[in-house]
Write a protein that binds this DNA or RNA. Structure first.
Lengths: 212, 212
DNA sequence: ACAATAGTGTCTCTCAGACATTATCAA
DNA sequence: TTGATAATGTCTGAGAGACACTATTGT
């Protein structure tokens, strides 16, 4: 909107909700997808905070991640607003759910962060379980559209490593040959190979640039 | 969330934003997609309102549509939260953008509603142009997944009419034979035909039910 | 007869899935 | 030499796009 209809109303006429942000920070290893939880009064939950005056949602998310789990430099993305008036017994609180992604190493080393496999979640408060579910589904949709849109891997990578990222995101094994063919559109082979490994040395690939 | 971190804070410690809802109500004719605008102080804009205490976003959207454009019985869907602290010079106002859909007839007859083709929008205030853009993109994505997910058409319809709906949503002409084959998964032919028309009388189709 | 619309058939292309084969390393 | 991994080739089936053809009506 923002129209009050007649103009006779002012913003002060309406009771205002508290607005919080809660973020599912996902990481991927070769074996599974993890979500970063943090401990509050002994229980695990998603990191979150209240939105402050003059602050954007994006900034509130990044501030909460810095404060709660010591993670920075991220690209939060909105997922959904949870708006049940009864969802928080302390009062009227809307929560804007977000998704973000970090490398697994950052998550493991961050103080206050406890990465947990998304397939093995503890009981979470509020709508946090739904948020994780939406975040995973969103990430899966993203990874159906490209090689490594969230850049879990570096500039050069083997197709095997890329496949393991996709398997972690998808939560199921993928056929090797089909996967390679599907990635053909998104990656280009380089002349480099990874040396000193068992088996034929794998070629390193890079992301395909605009119209290559 | 909603975690305050230490527990020493209460909800009252934080300034709270006003929260509004703004809705892009879309309609489709054989020729184009329309969005329902309403006039406020002489200018066109999307219908919207402020969220009230104890109200869900969904209810606020439906209330605003009833009040502003006389439309009811809809299924609003969240699109995005617009959160620029400076977006409304009356104060700190978040807007939760929504999408909804009505038949073109309802929109034309509704008092206060002015349907405008989405390809020919006037200048809109706030983020309303972005909201329309997101709504159209969302509707297009929906119509790529089924025959008539938003039920612009009735229980029985010709494939020609269905194609026209899809063309209005997509904003471009579609190939007839390809379209028919694609719809094969979603619709079933009935024995009825539409009589009294020029050319071979078209068969009426219906939506395919669970596992037909 | 003719124009107009509905509906079907065929061919090609692309892509996914499944299977087989070749290539190149370490141990 | 053997085991492990990388990379390629081939076949089949599904679906999209393009084109041609038949069917059935009103005028």
């Amino acid at each position: 909107m923002t129209s009050t209809g007649t103009g006779s109303h002012s913003l002060a006429d309406y009771e205002r909700p508290s607005v919080a942000v809660d973020t599912a920070v996902l990481t991927a290893t070769a074996k599974a997808l993890f979500v970063v939880l943090t401990r509050f009064h002994g229980d695990l939950r998603l990191p979150g905070t209240f939105l402050r005056a003059g602050e954007t949602l994006d900034r509130a998310v990044r501030r909460s991640l810095t404060e709660k789990v010591g993670l920075t430099g991220l690209r939060p993305q909105q997922l959904h607003v949870f708006d049940d008036p009864e969802r928080d017994d302390r009062g009227w609180v809307l929560s804007v759910a977000h998704l973000d992604v970090v490398s697994h190493e950052s998550a493991v080393h961050a103080t206050g962060a406890e990465p947990v496999p998304v397939t093995d979640l503890p009981t979470l408060p509020f709508d946090h379980a739904q948020i994780v579910e939406r975040a995973v589904e969103h990430l899966r949709a993203e990874y159906r559209t490209g090689a490594d849109p969230r850049r879990f891997l570096g500039a050069r990578f083997t197709l095997r490593d890329l496949q393991r990222v996709h398997e972690a995101v998808a939560g199921e094994p993928l056929r090797r040959e089909t996967f390679r063919k599907r990635m053909d559109r998104f990656v280009l082979p380089t002349e480099q190979r990874l040396e000193g490994v068992v088996g034929k040395p794998p070629r390193l690939y890079r992301h395909r640039r605009e119209g290559e």
